[in-house]
Design a protein around this nucleic acid. Sequence first.
RNA 1: GCGCCCGUAGCUCAGCUGGAUAGAGCAGCGGACUUCUAAUCCGCAGGUCGCAGGUUCGAAUCCUGCCGGGCGUGCCA
Length: 545
Amino acid sequence: MSLEARLAVLVREAVRERYGVELAEVHVERPNDPTHGDFATNVALANARVFRRNPREVAGTLAESLASPIVEKAEVAGPGFMNFWLSAEALWDGVRELLEAGEGYGRRAAHGKPILLEYVSVNPTGPMTVAHGRHAAYGDSLARILEAAGRRVFREYYFNDGGNQIRLLGESVALRYAELYEESWPVSDPDALYRGEYVREIARDLRKEAGGRYLQMGREKALPEIGAFATRWCMEEIERTLNRARATFDDYFNEKSLYESGAVEDLIWDLKKAGHVYESEGALWLRSTAFGDDKDRVLVKSDGSYTYMAPDLAYHRDKYQRGFGTAVDVLGADHAGYPPRIRAGLVALGIPEDFLDVELVRLVKLMREGEQVKVSKRAGTFVTFDELMDEVGEDVARYFYVRSSHKTEMNFDLDLAIRQSDENPVFYVQYAHARIASIFGRAGASPKKAGEFPTGDLAPEERALVLELLDFPRVVENAAERREVHPVPTYLETLATRFHQFYTVHRVLVEDEVVRGRRLALCAATKVVLRAGLELLGVEAPEKM
RNA sequence: GCGCCCGUAGCUCAGCUGGAUAGAGCAGCGGACUUCUAAUCCGCAGGUCGCAGGUUCGAAUCCUGCCGGGCGUGCCA
């Protein structure tokens, strides 16, 4: 049990004993100001009405009757806060627990229904851009955080390698391919073609593999094959990039399979049967307004083809049918209109409203020399995720992405990112880890064995460090609950600060064996948490820098 | 027009879902290495938390209305 939770129990018991009142919630928090104790609670203030007494008086009474080996001192402060100072034993107990858990510290055992986390899901029409990078970094880190917090997570990538976009890619490649042989290739709409350099690259690879074969055969027959080659090429490229960025998936789900399995047809049929669709103007509409949507949506167009909504709805129903308790979709903010209608469709199918949880990732605004860079995949004016990693490295890229909430728009100043990559806060955190590794290198002791039974009073810097260390499980759980990744980097930076401060003031490798053992224990504990935290972000914890 | 999201230091962002004097990092200024890594530490300066009301012991946080920005509002995905 966390220290907060234990204190909350003590306070609740004291309240019951002295006032005969059972409080539903006791809020214990860590004050910003260390002179306000290790922990504080506002029960006396928050429940002034229940007690019908002066909050300071209540707090005083409670502080007096609070007797526990974990509390060294409890006092009243301000308008009626109770401030707690923990005993050294309680803090060392926490550190020992941490060291015993090792890499498992802050990780909860798996519980509950599995979550299907869908992220990135970019269609294979080109390389990943810096915008996609944010999705990969956020999605993968979120998966790691959820897993650490005990959620079972299945990571899925949904893609479509058929359809209009792909045909255009095929034509784009075919045109470049023909050019290599100084021949022409008729295209349906020259303005709609993809223009990036990668299109030529695909064309060259196509020539390498197939020679001029596709020019000999009929163009209509060749095009689908070229398109397939191009998509495969792009998909491999994307997977390589994801791999490099340390973002992994359990499954790549192809939209096509929904048609092949009949899932889309079944969906339409079931909705018809349930009476949630109607025909109008030759199209088939979903009565989504009956389920909270702004307007009804077309499922089958008047030309008989499906809108994107049909397979998407079938896909989400499939997620539900596979037994997942929650589906988390990580989508771009330009899909903001999407959640209400999919949710409406799901509810129409009898699936609980809260099954779908959509996290919208804000766009990445690229800046170069103070100017916004217009990004267009079609026009080929984009910066790829790979290029970014080439410039700043994988660690910096991943850390930079998740440092701010996915919900806020991000200004990505390329010049600044490259120029300042040396000063990136990720190095600040990594440096703390490397410093500790260096100490253990000199000490000739392994972090595991170091200071198995630390005891004694803690200096202010040591106390601050321990309190920060023991906060890690709470941070992880909180991040998982909120589906936010950025609390982790924020936490790691604070932890690194606490360590650097400790390191500056206290020498670890001293003669006194007790003191040395105690400080080594703190180093070992810090190392464990830094590594575990960085692991959640997919960032390396270097032994040396 | 309507619906969501955002507005915190010069810049990039935190602020634990109502607490005590609003915090970091960059950038600026000034200090600290004969001692475990100075990619560090300490100090100074920097703020009408977009504006105006409201709720209460207490508001950056919750409610309402404005102002400013973004996104959505397709038989596109």
